[in-house]
Amino acid sequence: MPGPSPDANLAEVLRQWTNAFGWSERAAFLCGDDVYTHGEVHRGAARVASLLRAHGVAPSDRVAIALPGSMELVWSFLGAVRIGAIAVLADPDASALPSAAFAVCTPGRHPHTITPVELIAALPAAAFADPYPVLPEAPAYGQHATTYAHRDPEESYLAMEPFGLRENDVLFSVSKTYDPVGLRNTIFLPLFTGSCAVLDSRQRSIPLVAEGVRRHRASVLLSTSAFLGRLAAERPEGDFAPLRLAVSQGATPPPSRVEQWLGCPVVTP
């Protein structure tokens, strides 16, 4: 059986996909008016990995990341995974953080912490950390007491592949980034497909989602069946242009009339 390898590290796998398909200069994330390329994502993650290591984070340590949808969250998540730590995503508004040796969060929430402001200030001078050798089955990240292995996100991406996400797609996720489904929608899908995702930490009301879709010209809405049920019940007047596709995720099939308000087909995994 093959031993641990840096090439099995999830953060390195995603970086290698970017290089293999020539996505470095393509937009990966839209955050407000800022645009971050796939290359910037992976360079930032390697620098944050170095910062975490300098703060004493070791392989297999749990790193709580309690941030809203932002580049600091993306870089911290991939940086922790890159050094073989276990990234534990948490709701930034939760009253308590999950048990962890270290945390990336606002001040005063954990005895061993780097804050988003400190992280951004230290990033330019940080070195690039090499990926830590792991087995594909090694834990990479956790949410809500569930732990996922380095290989798991690729399997999750393959389950979405039949929907034909494209390199020029802009993805908007109704589920937030720290949620298990939102993590896949917002981080893994764009980094596996060369597409771009919107980082938006606002509440997921129907008007705000519609405004976010229009502002960023999102082409794919990754929704929950509950959100689509609300859409059918509220019958909003605004439109969701320029969507070409909506994906409904959840146990309840979306109401058929939802396509009328979205103006695009709705598919269900």
Rank of each mutant, 00 (worst) to 15 (best):
P92G: 05
A197S: 14
I206F: 03
L51E: 11
Y178P: 01
L231N: 02
L97I: 09
G250I: 06
A85F: 02
Y157L: 13
E25H: 07
L243H: 01
Q203I: 15
V88D: 10
L231T: 06
F21H: 14
V41I: 13
R204T: 14
S50L: 07
S24K: 08
F192S: 12
L221V: 08
F163I: 15
E118S: 12
A66H: 00
F172P: 01
A11M: 00
E137S: 12
V170T: 12
R47S: 07
A129P: 04
R82H: 01
S248F: 00
G3P: 06
Y132Q: 12
W261I: 11
E40P: 06
V63A: 00
E25F: 00
S156A: 15
E161Q: 14
H112T: 12
P98Y: 02
C105T: 14
R204V: 13
N168S: 10
A87E: 04
P2A: 13
A90G: 06
G69L: 03
E259R: 11
A94W: 02
A246P: 04
V174H: 06
T115Q: 03
W23C: 09
V41N: 06
L51A: 10
P253D: 01
P116F: 04
T106A: 15
L189D: 13
F77K: 10
V48P: 05
G142L: 07
F21W: 08
P253C: 01
A90C: 08
R15T: 13
L199D: 13
S201L: 12
P6L: 15
V267Q: 14
P254E: 01
M71L: 15
D7F: 08
H55S: 13
W23N: 06
R257A: 08
G22P: 05
K176T: 15
A233P: 00
P4G: 10
I65A: 01
N19I: 13
P254K: 00
L73H: 11
A125H: 11
A197T: 06
R109C: 09
S256W: 00
P6F: 10
T106P: 00
E25Q: 10
F227W: 08
W17A: 15
A218D: 10
V266P: 08
H110S: 04
S70T: 11
I83T: 09
S50G: 08
Y157G: 08
S225K: 00
V35I: 15
L97N: 04
L67A: 08
L262W: 01
R214E: 13
S256L: 06
A149K: 02
A127R: 09
A126N: 02
A11H: 02
A45V: 10
L51S: 08
F102C: 09
V134E: 06
T193S: 15
G108F: 07
S76I: 07
R151K: 11
T115S: 05
A45E: 09
S225P: 01
H38I: 11
A145N: 14
L228A: 07
A101E: 14
V74A: 09
V267I: 15
G32Y: 07
V48F: 03
